[in-house]
Design a protein around this nucleic acid. Structure first.
Length: 299
DNA sequence: AAGCCGGGGTG
DNA sequence: CACCCAGGCTT
């Protein structure tokens, strides 16, 4: 006996699922992993073209493992959080070194890959291997929070009880469970959206506790505040990475100072990027009093 | 549990 | 301008 939400969401998915390249039967498990890492905090519309180019260039883990890291970071372009690109290449090298270049089929082995957390491991199990798993991303959490709890948005942090409740909704058999995960995620992305949900076309509106309660506003909305953007280290890191991506040659710190004018921030950001392995300082001859260090993307 | 990590599209 | 997006890692 499936959970009441399952049949209508599966039916809706049958007619409203988007045609995404990583959902095509020909897509490899590696292609699914690439898509999931790219989709970590980056919207589908921006990932799609990047994924197409990426998979055409590096179809297998062995291909990506052999690529220069500078090429990988340039191909990542402006998807954001370039550490993900680094980790994806580390994944490729880990697969080549420890799994014969083949994607693992257990959740534990997937969790051992760099950049693969609870969500991504579950997603690969479902979407690449067709296995039952608890795929709990921001979309699924929101759909369940509304339909079952009657609240506008899920709690900021995912709790153990919430995970257990989500697990209880997942159908028992592998194939249906995998399809449910894709379907409920798609519902959250297309209908049960964060901003302006389209309850008028929702297949489970008549089962939804949030709709029944009159769609109350988020109880703890005032506690969600963003860091801001202008002047942050994140913005500065992005500018440094952009300067290095778009240059064919190593870039002196003095040139980056045009993009990051606060010297203290520039120094802090450069040190952080070096520590993260995203940039590499060139060795300079200190005997000549060199005062303008030069950086490049990692080879 | 909280903070950090990009970037762009949207209301 | 604030908010959101198929999260993960560190402290």
């Amino acid at each position: 006996m499936p959970h009441p939400l399952v049949p209508p969401v599966l039916d809706w998915f049958g007619t409203h699922a988007r045609d995404l390249p990583w959902r095509e039967p020909r897509c490899t498990p590696w292609g699914v992993l690439v898509s999931e890492v790219m989709l970590q905090q980056t919207p589908v519309v921006r990932v799609r073209p990047a994924w197409e180019a990426w998979m055409a260039r590096w179809p297998t883990p062995a291909d990506l493992a052999a690529a220069p890291t500078a090429d990988v970071l340039r191909a990542w372009d402006r998807l954001g959080y370039p550490r993900r690109a680094l980790r994806l290449q580390q994944c490729a090298r880990h697969l080549v070194d420890h799994h014969d270049g083949v994607m693992p089929t257990t959740e534990d082995a997937l969790l051992a890959l760099p950049g693969v957390g609870a969500y991504t491991a579950a997603a690969v199990m479902a979407f690449a291997h067709g296995r039952r798993s608890v795929v709990l991303d921001t979309n699924v959490r929101r759909v369940l929070a509304r339909t079952l709890d009657g609240v506008a948005l899920p709690h900021p942090t995912l709790t153990r009880p919430e995970h257990a409740r989500a697990e209880a909704v997942v159908p028992a058999d592998d194939a249906t469970a995998a399809r449910w995960s894709a379907a409920v995620m798609e519902l959250g992305a297309l209908v049960c959206t964060a901003r302006s949900p389209r309850c008028d076309v929702c297949p489970v509106a008549d089962l939804c506790r949030w709709v029944a309660d009159g769609r109350p506003v988020d109880a703890h909305a005032h506690r969600r505040r963003r860091q801001g953007w202008a002047g942050t280290d994140r913005q500065a890191r992005g500018r440094v990475m952009r300067a290095l991506r778009t240059s064919d040659h190593p870039v002196p710190r003095s040139v980056m100072a045009a993009d990051v004018t606060d010297p203290g921030q520039l120094g802090r950001v450069l040190d952080g990027l070096v520590a993260d392995g995203l940039i590499t300082p060139l060795v300079v001859d200190h005997a000549h009093g060199e005062d303008d260090p030069v950086y490049r993307l990692p080879s």
